[in-house]
Design a protein around this nucleic acid. Structure first.
Lengths: 340, 340
DNA sequence: GTGAAAGCGCTAACAA
DNA sequence: TTGTTAGCGCTTTCAC
């Protein structure tokens, strides 16, 4: 027995008033007679009336909704960002529609399309790993649809974005290893199309150069994000004729795999190999040894991302200049890198 | 410069045909003249026409959307379930609207309300930790709105659900510890209002009883899900006059904290204390020592959950009997519990 | 094969 | 303070 939901028309009919009066009463407009309002409210309550959001949005041509597209919510970083974005959005009276790309370019395009069809008023996107063609997001820009990128962005797209200073962070992490006595430092990077990964590699190189420790490209290994592959790359790195005594890893998740591989090989962390990575996931504080990691100000990043989006959402007709917010990171030093 | 999206009306006007013809052409109906269809399609493509989903849904009084409410997507279990639910739903032509409760009863009720207003056709819910009043979900049942619960359910609600055999799983885990020589086994449980936690405690007790090892309630400690609290409870457990030589922990996440605390105290795992927990998160295979854990068939659970929901969604008028699907779990034995 | 018209549930002028 | 009317963008009879 499918139930037909109650509408304002039902309320109007049984109260013998017009539907606009009901609408007004329900929305708490001033000009309504207290008695009328009371009657409407009471009946609505009794019938457990739920306004039809579709109709409401259609009528107002306004959804107060923003679309959020992330690679995968099972990465702690993204689910944490989602929480902070949702919170900030809610505060501004917006609700959020979330989609995952599962790192697929194709799903990214269909997600954008679906959200567009759902009339979201703006987008917050972190690009998928496989995305190397930006036509779909550039189209949003051209159409003047408010959009903010975070974390996974691309240089060539002219949009507002919230990122961290990846170069500086990697520099800091690498220098930290150097200060702890490491002399041959390796890097476990992400896929080469990830801007973020390349920036971190650059920061790592800069630190090595500064300290006169420059070594060849063979100390940088690129992994996809799987455990298996990370383990393989780690072992490959350690099989170099002169294996590293320190490794910067591009994510905690990958560092867990790397550390597992190292321990399997009987290497001690940090004595034989020191480790620093990125993200500072909660589990990193519990790992053995506890993992030194670059922490990103997730809370603030979410707030900033939403702020930048609201700025475009509320912009008057003229196109406003894009803004890039670069956040500072913090190195959380734990056991995995403390050699002295 | 806010852009006015193109509508079928625009297409109709510039092609000098009626909007119903455009509508039909766009939906690929048979009766349309090939030439007309081609013209419409081409113009739609050119203008990057995106159908307004709100209008579509409103007109058809059908959204083909299901609402999913989970405690928190940053728990691996829930984001994994979401992925598997989404996949199954997509396959059946449904899209998914996700909400998080952050373990709050209040947000659970507002989430339900919002999804109702968004005209979702059915719900998949995993109750929040703080939920101990079920009126809000019972109301859905009364209204005959298709609903399936998974993982976090309540006995008293008469709905279809997908769960694992928690009693059997805990029994299996406990017995495994016993077989590995543990004689005083503790239990780090969740909050007492969690059905799932209580069932696991019961399974644990049953195993102890079977093996003549029954011990008092003082070996069961209840934690909230935070790291701090878990560490405190673990230390409390180990401070008993006769500390346990084995611990069953209700989640991997909590086990990480417990193991951290144990290692801090200088205890060896599994030699001094063996550990088994629940969820088999990917990280558990990398932890030191690797963590023995009860694995749930997440993929299958997602599929089943959607299947049960579709069953209600497609049901003819008569109320169909609720179905409870109890899934089997698997104990993945790793180093944390292998003492022989 | 195509068009006119009504309607999905609601909001928003404009009158009264 | 309330009602009437016209949409929002689309689907769906029902004619032609």
């Amino acid at each position: 027995m499918k139930n037909t939901p109650v509408t304002i028309k039902d309320i109007a009919r049984s109260l013998n008033i017009s539907i606009s009066t009901v609408s007004r009463a329900l929305r708490g407009m001033q000009e309504i007679h207290p008695d009328t309002r009371r009657a409407v409210m009471q009946l609505a309550e009794e019938l457990d009336y739920q306004p039809n959001q579709l109709a409401k949005n259609l009528a107002k041509s306004r959804t107060k909704t923003i679309g959020v597209i992330v690679p995968n919510l099972s990465y702690h970083y993204f689910s944490a960002m989602l929480n902070s974005i949702e919170e900030a959005a809610l505060q501004a009276g917006y609700s959020v529609l979330v989609c995952q790309t599962n790192e697929s370019y194709l799903r990214e395009t269909t997600n954008i399309q679906n959200l567009l069809r759902s009339q979201v008023e703006g987008f917050i996107i972190s690009l998928s790993r496989d995305t190397d063609n930006y036509e779909h997001v550039e189209r949003l820009v051209r159409k003047n649809i408010p959009l903010v990128l975070f974390d996974r962005y691309a240089e060539s797209i002219d949009v507002s974005k919230v990122i961290v200073d990846n170069h500086a962070a990697a520099f800091k992490a690498t220098e930290h290893l150097i200060e702890n006595g490491c002399r041959r430092i390796g890097f476990l990077a992400g896929p080469t199309q990830l801007v973020l990964s390349n920036q971190r590699v650059a920061g790592y190189r800069a630190a090595l150069t500064k300290h006169g420790l420059s070594i060849g490209d063979q100390y940088v290994f690129h992994c996809d994000y799987t455990q298996e592959n990370t383990i393989i790359q780690t072992l490959a790195l350690m099989s170099l004729p002169q294996p590293p005594d320190g490794i910067v890893v591009i994510s905690d998740r990958m560092a867990y795999s790397a550390m597992y591989a190292l321990k399997q090989k009987g290497m001690r962390i940090p004595e034989d190999v020191a480790i620093v990575s990125f993200n500072n996931e909660p589990v990193s504080a519990l790992f053995s040894p506890t993992l030194s990691s670059i922490s990103q100000p997730i809370q603030e990043m979410g707030t900033e991302t939403v702020r930048l989006l609201l700025r475009e959402l509320n912009a008057t007709d003229t196109a406003i200049p894009k803004e890039t917010k670069v956040m500072e990171t913090q190195l959380i030093v734990r056991a995995s890198s403390m050699r002295r």
